[in-house]
Design a protein around this nucleic acid. Structure first.
Lengths: 322, 322
DNA sequence: CAATTTTTGTCAATGTTTTGTATAGTTTTG
DNA sequence: CAAAACTATACAAAACATTGACAAAAATTG
């Protein structure tokens, strides 16, 4: 189910007939006699159907050819129709449709997380991608990142240390996530005066995912983000800041291998960009560098909420200056 | 939504008609009746269209031939139109882009390339992304990759050596391209028995883009691809091949820094996966390793056409074995 | 079980709407 | 000036809607 049932997509009766397999005349008859579907109309009176209507008619068609009379099933809900058709094709009693009852989004996220982890464990990128896509639609980008992706990545890290997973599991997961960045980002046009930010990872830091997620979070907070990927020396990051006229730069530091390199790069960056541009740092390893962070004047992200708060403050500050 | 006072407006209706495949009269009718596009005008009243308008009309044309009525879809956003056409092309056999002759397409690709390069030079990721998106709609993924992206990357490499561009230009471009991977890929469900492939980059090789493009090309040739990203040791690649039951692995080698590491990794990989799984290698630096490639039994990609040919042969071979 | 009624899919007749194309005369452009 | 665009109007084919009817199939009844 790549495409969600688009609210915007609408069909005329011919297309509906083709796709559902029910002749146009019959579609109209079912509507007239039993209100099996109730399409809206154009100003001229032509019927306009939705994807849901098509699905409905498809199911009705199957059910009737299975022996059900149309008058009995025409007004069933889509769910009931699905169950009806399914239970017949399998001749297995349908398990009562108990959805994870609490409609709590966090609960749903946790539920998806288990499914996703199972897909990772089974090394099944297609399944993983599909779970992700559904979860994004259902949860929205922010909750998806905060309550599904982050715990998932944490768990993958743990299980890798425990020897249950290999590095390749993490690589596979990362690349699936990266490929979904396009959907996660919200593509609404940004205001010309939206605050600008550069996101990258200092030299010698290879793990990209943290930076990518930070970039997406910033976009969702209505920043205009220039994402640069990994492993950039300070001069390059500084150049990008100058080019884009950015007011802030976010860096992700995910492991503490080369203490001195990170420290050196941070000092150089501060020198290059001057004191007025905010440097924000996040990532698992950021805490190890607390001393340098203080020295250079860097904000250390504690959580997503914290990050959002920092972004809001910075945006406000800029607005006041304008 | 479309262009109102767009500086990039530049095409007359005849050009638009040719490139979108919608007759001039019809373009005007769609505008008059449904405001499907709203071009600016010259002082004398002639309509002037943008690249985005062309993409829009092309999508509208495809959607109508898929059974949508123009009145219903004329005012959808570009994003919605893309989704509509994409979700349909998954189930309906889509006639390949026929409209402009192939030589015209190459000319158009070259034209887009110049615009994209200008956006890179100006360090304007938003403009770059927008050019890319329009070009993908108009050219289709294959031509886009082969005749726009590849020459663009080559030129960026040259200009970087010449000192006209900085590394950060290339990073920015790469990350824009990566974010578009999702659109470039072909999302139609693959047959269960589609041949499988793993794509990655050996340890010590950071440049990801070649591998990513190879992965996309393979997907477009109906392979089921598992993309793993960069910098993986041989055991991990071998593990992925085992997990996915892949018949081939494609590696991208983009520079010749550590001769012995690459050679060693290739030998180890061959040992780990046995003689029956094809190893395909591409990338700028592949030619430097010719000796090792021969020794280990590796196919070296010469061009996209060559890559496609190799893929076709491998797919056929597997089919015969089944 | 036969007769009767109801349900259901299909069709025909007739009028309207949608949509692509065509015509005619004018204006802009290079 | 010739080619190409513009506007306005018109037209016809395709697609839809409505109404009403009809016969086969299914259900009900006596």
């Amino acid at each position: 189910m790549t495409s969600t049932s688009d609210e915007s997509a609408q069909y005329l009766i011919k297309t509906v007939s083709k796709r559902s397999g029910v002749k146009s005349d019959l579609v109209r008859a079912w509507e007239r006699r039993y209100q099996a579907v109730t399409p809206t109309r154009t100003s001229g009176g032509h019927r306009i159907y939705t994807d849901q209507d098509i699905a409905r008619l498809k199911l009705l068609n199957q059910a009737t050819s299975n022996g059900h009379s149309i008058s009995q099933i025409a007004r069933l809900s889509l769910e009931d129709l699905k169950n009806l058709v399914k239970s017949e094709s399998e001749s297995i009693p349908q398990p009562p449709h108990i959805i994870p009852s609490s409609s709590d989004r966090l609960y749903i996220a946790a539920d998806y997380m288990e499914k996703c982890y199972a897909a990772v464990l089974a090394f099944d990128p297609k399944a993983l991608e599909s779970h992700f896509e559904n979860a994004i639609v259902e949860l929205g980008s922010e909750i998806f990142i905060e309550h599904l992706l982050t715990p998932l990545l944490t768990r993958i890290g743990e299980r890798w240390k425990a020897g249950e997973l290999r590095p390749v599991h993490e690589h596979m997961t990362s690349s699936v996530i990266r490929s979904l960045a396009y959907i996660l980002r919200n593509n609404k046009p940004r205001a010309e005066n939206a605050p600008r930010m550069v996101v990258s990872t200092p030299i010698d830091q290879l793990h990209e995912l943290g930076a990518l997620l930070a970039a997406i979070m910033a976009e969702l907070s209505d920043w205009q983000v220039t994402y640069l990927g990994t492993n950039l020396p300070a001069e390059e990051i500084a150049a990008a800041i100058k080019y884009t006229n950015a007011r802030a730069v976010t860096l992700s530091i995910s492991f503490a291998a080369n203490d001195h390199v990170v420290a050196k790069e941070l000092r150089r960056l501060r020198k290059l960009i001057g004191p007025d541009i905010a440097i924000i740092v996040g990532g698992r390893a950021a805490e190890y560098y607390q001393d340098i962070l203080n020295e250079v004047g860097v904000v250390n992200i504690q959580s997503y909420a914290h990050f959002r708060q920092i972004l809001a403050e910075l945006a406000l500050k800029q607005e006041n200056q304008n």
